[in-house]
């Protein structure tokens, strides 16, 4: 089975962070998560929506999210995902790493001479 790459420039594991972050707002089904990512990033990080679900399963296997069936806002059966305590802790650590990393890269890019 060929490993599916996250589309665009999305780094491996970044999708997981986005999902966890979206779940901080409360339990959500897959579609809501993808909508949230879409809106918060103003569609900059376009993800193939189908890849959301294997990513959710991986988070679930690692105990970072839980899922259960419920009814959606328009009364349809949907699977809702909830972030666990372990998930919150993981998000905190990852976010810290990510922020430090991106700050470092930003700093490098801003050093004289300017790029353009």
């Amino acid at each position: 089975m060929p490993t599916r790459r996250e589309p665009g420039d999305l780094l491996q594991g970044t999708l997981g962070i986005l999902i966890l972050k979206s779940l901080l707002l409360g339990p959500a089904h897959g579609y809501a998560i993808s909508r949230w990512i879409e809106e918060t990033t103003s569609d900059v990080l376009r993800i193939e929506e189908g890849s959301l679900y294997p990513a959710l399963r991986r988070l679930q296997d690692r105990g970072l999210v839980q899922s259960e069936w419920g009814l959606s806002e328009n009364n349809r059966r949907a699977r809702f995902y909830t972030i666990t305590t372990a998930g919150r802790k993981h998000l905190r650590n990852e976010a810290e790493v990510w922020l430090r990393y991106s700050q470092a890269v930003t700093r490098v890019l801003r050093v004289e001479p300017a790029i353009a």
Binding site: R4, E48, E49, G50, S51, Y53, P54, R57
Partner: peptide, 17 residues
């Protein structure tokens, strides 16, 4: 289109679940 390649995703999820 937005959802992407439907069949392999389904297969992976079913297998996993």
């Amino acid at each position: 289109e937005r959802f992407g390649d439907h069949a392999p995703v389904r297969e992976e999820l079913v297998h996993h679940d």
